[in-house]
């Protein structure tokens, strides 16, 4: 199952957010959502804490520098493989406040289990 297919299934079952995924060298989206760049590098995300407002449309631009890391936010039904050298874009509009933890789910080495972060959605 491809990342796009998996994401489509997640979309179908997730009522909390609206999300989309794009992978490529340029931003194919025409929307004016806020863009948040996230760098994935053994064994951390930078930034690792992302603060959003409820109802705010944002685009996460994820780039892996040294490994095909994963990006998994189980409670938002989001996951993607981050291809080295490409920007992976995840669009989301959180509709419920809370803390949503994310982590790398492609085993990347000794401190893989510590590679995580959180999305904080505020009212």
């Amino acid at each position: 199952m491809t990342a796009r297919r998996r994401l489509a299934l997640a979309l179908a079952s997730c009522a909390l957010i609206s999300i989309g995924l794009a992978i490529g060298a340029t931003n194919s989206s025409d929307d004016q959502s806020r863009v948040i760049r996230i760098v994935a590098q053994r064994f951390s995300y930078t930034p690792s804490e992302i603060v959003l407002k409820k109802g705010e449309a944002v685009t996460l631009e994820l780039e892996a520098l040294d490994f095909a890391h994963g990006f998994n936010v189980p409670d938002l039904g989001i996951r993607a493989d981050l291809v080295e050298g490409q920007v992976t874009r995840v669009q989301l509009t959180p509709e419920k406040s809370g803390v949503y933890e994310f982590h790398c789910d492609n085993f990347c080495g000794a401190d893989h289990e510590q590679m995580d972060g959180k999305i904080i959605v505020q009212d």
Partner: peptide
């Protein structure tokens, strides 16, 4: 525990 990656995707 998906938050801890204690799962198998397929």
């Amino acid at each position: 525990a998906p938050k801890w990656d204690w799962a198998t995707r397929d």
